[in-house]
Design a binder for these strands. Structure first.
Lengths: 313, 313
DNA sequence: AGGTCCGATGGAACCGGTTCCATCGAACGA
DNA sequence: TCGTTCGATGGAACCGGTTCCATCGGACCT
C-alpha cells in the first residue's frame, strides 16, 4: 500500500509539501502540485482515513439519526443526504433512534463531526441536548435556536383540506401519524384550521405508525365517521386505506376521497384525487448542505428553512 | 477530554498497562486492572477511535452494500446487521450499490474491515472481485468460494406452487423480480419445476423492480394470461397487484390467489392464501455473525448457510 | 542457597497523516 | 548594490492509542 512518503519520494518533495499539494492548500507552486498529484495517481495512493482524522482532530463522518427504517419516507432523505455527503468528502452513517437510548447519543457524538436529526420524536430538551454536542441540523422538525429544514406540509395539508371542502366534502377525517411527531402536530393544526374555516366537520384519528398495515387497520374507524374524504398522514397509511376500502367495495374516489402518493394514484387510474408531494431527496440534500455550512463556520446555528410542498391532482 | 495518559496517571500505571487493562488482554494483574477501569470511569474516558484505528490497522467499520433502499425487504436486514454489529463493537455504514460505480468499491474497501454484500445484481466476477479485497459475506446470493447466507425461498416458492396446483390452479403466473437478482433466478427455477411436476401451465413475467408501483402496473399482463393464481417475487409487488385487482373488481382469493405478506393478508381478512415468510432481521444477524467469525479468523471463507423459510396460510 | 523461569510492568517505537516553524532563494525597493 | 520581504519548501513535532522488547522481582526447582 503506497504511503504519503512514497508519493513524496516519487515526486521528489517532502511529506509536508506532498500533503499540501494533495489537499489543495494553495501554498504549493503549481508545477510542484501537478507533479505530486501525478505521482499519487500513478501509485494509486489513497490517504489513510484514520491517520488523517487523528491529525486533523475531525472524523469526516456525519451521523444521520432516523426514528425508524419502517417508514419509506425516510429512505429518500437518507439517499439525498448521502449524495451530498459524498460530494463534500464526508461519510454518512445511519443510526436508528439513538437519542432515547442511554448514552448512545453521547458515544456517537465522539465519533462524528455532526448530526442530521430526522424527525426526532423526543422532547425538545432532549433533542436540543444532543444537538448541542456537535453541529446538527434538524429535518422535519423545528426547535428555536437549532438549524432546521422542513417540508412545509402543514400549508399543503391545509390547502388540501380547503380544496376538499370546496368540492363539497363537509365531513373529513384526518388520520394522524406517529406519536410525538412534530409534523403530525403541524398538519393536524393546519387541517383543523382549514376545516373550521370552511365549516366542515373534522374527525382526527391517531396516533398510529406510518405503515401500510396501520392504514388497513384504521379503515373501520374511518368508515364509522361517515366522512366522505380522508386525509392520511403518510402515503403508506393511504395505500393501506385504499386497499382496505376497495376490498370492502367502497369506490374511491366516488364514495370516498383519499389523498396519497401521486404516482400510485396515476397508476391506478384514479382521477380527481388531490395529494401532497414531498421531495424527500431534496430535504436530505438541503439538510446536508446546511450542515456543511455549519461545519465550515459559514453559518450560525438557528437558520430555519422551509421547502414548499406542492398539492397535485 | 481525558486521555489515556490521564487515565494512566490517575491509576498510577504506564500508558501501556492502562491500554492493556482497558482492552482486557489478560496480561495485567487483576487488582491493577480494576484500578485502571475505575480511573477511566471516573474521568469519563472514551478512547479516540482514530488513534486506535491507526495503531491497530483496522477501522472497526463494516460496510453493508445494498442495491437500493426502495425495497422494504432490505431494511430489516440492515436493522439485524446493525444490532449484531453494535454488540461486536463495530460500526455499520450503509452504502447503496457501490459495486458498479467505478472505483467506489475499492475506495470503500480501504476504509472498512469487511463487507456485507446484500443481493448484489452484478456479475459473479465483479462481486467476487469486491469480496476479495476484504473479508465479505454475501446475503441472498451464493457464489462458489464466498461465505454466504441466504433465505431458502426457492424451496418455499416451490412448495407454494405445488400447493396452489394441488388446490386446483392449473394456470399460474410468476411475477419476477429485479433484473440480475440471484434470488429471482432461484425462485423462477423452483416455481417452474414445481409447475411442471404438477402439470400446471406457468407464465413468467418480468423482470421488474420490487415496488408497489410495479405490482400495479403489471396487473393487466397478469389478467391477460387467464391464470387463477399469482406468485409474486416480493411482498411490495403483491400488494400493488392486490390493490389493482380489487380496483378492477377481481375478487381475491376467489377469482385469483395472490401470495404475499401474512400480516397484511390477515388484516384484510383474506383466508386460504398461502405465502412465504422471510425473516430479514435474522438474515442480517446471521450475516454479521459470519463476518465477525471471518474477521477473527475463526472460520475460512466459503461457508454457505441457508435459512429455512416457512410457507404460511 | 543460587540459578532459572515467568508474570507484571514500563519505555519507546510506530501507525500515517497535518501543520507549526525555520530556512532558503529570488524579486523587489531604496 | 544591499537589505527586506514574501512565496515555496523541508524538518520535526504531534495527534492518541497499541504493541514489541527489555526489565524487574518473586516463586520455584535442584
Amino acid at each position: 500500500m503506497p504511503d504519503l512518503s512514497d508519493v513524496a519520494a516519487v515526486a521528489g518533495v517532502s511529506k509536508a509539501t506532498a500533503s499540501r499539494a494533495l489537499n489543495g492548500s494553495g501554498l504549493v507552486a503549481a508545477e510542484t502540485a501537478v507533479r505530486v498529484v501525478a505521482a499519487a495517481a500513478r501509485l494509486g495512493y489513497v490517504p489513510n482515513r484514520a491517520a488523517r482524522e487523528l491529525a486533523r482532530g475531525r472524523t469526516g463522518i456525519i451521523a444521520i439519526v432516523v426514528p425508524t427504517l419502517d417508514n419509506a419516507f425516510f429512505t429518500p432523505i437518507v439517499a439525498g443526504a448521502q449524495a451530498r455527503a459524498e460530494e463534500a468528502g464526508l461519510q454518512l452513517t445511519v443510526a436508528v433512534h439513538a437519542l432515547g437510548s442511554t448514552g448512545a447519543a453521547e458515544r456517537l457524538a465522539r465519533q462524528v463531526d455532526g448530526f442530521l436529526l430526522v424527525a426526532p420524536r423526543d422532547s425538545d430538551t432532549l433533542v436540543a441536548a444532543t444537538g448541542s454536542t456537535k453541529p446538527s441540523v434538524l429535518v422535519d422538525r423545528e426547535i428555536d435556536g437549532m438549524t432546521s429544514v422542513v417540508a412545509d406540509t402543514a400549508t399543503a395539508f391545509g390547502t388540501l383540506t380547503s380544496r376538499l371542502a370546496a368540492e363539497g366534502h363537509d365531513r373529513v377525517v384526518y388520520v394522524g401519524g406517529p406519536a410525538g411527531s412534530w409534523q403530525d402536530r403541524q398538519r393536524t393544526a393546519a387541517v383543523r384550521d382549514a376545516a373550521d374555516r370552511a365549516g366542515a366537520q373534522l374527525t382526527v384519528l391517531g396516533p398510529l405508525p406510518a405503515t401500510f398495515a396501520a392504514g388497513v387497520e384504521v379503515t373501520p374507524a374511518v368508515l364509522e365517521t361517515g366522512a366522505t374524504a380522508v386525509v392520511p398522514y403518510a402515503t403508506s397509511i393511504g395505500l393501506g386505506l385504499l386497499l382496505a376500502l376497495r376490498s370492502r367495495g367502497v369506490e374511491v374516489p366516488r364514495d370516498l376521497v383519499v389523498s396519497t402518493e401521486p404516482a400510485v394514484i396515476e397508476a391506478l387510474g384514479i382521477e380527481h384525487t388531490p395529494a401532497v408531494d414531498v421531495d424527500g431527496e431534496e430535504l436530505g440534500r438541503t439538510a446536508m448542505d446546511l450542515l456543511v455550512q455549519l461545519l465550515d463556520g459559514q453559518d450560525e446555528a438557528g437558520r430555519q428553512v422551509r421547502l414548499p410542498v406542492p398539492v397535485r391532482g
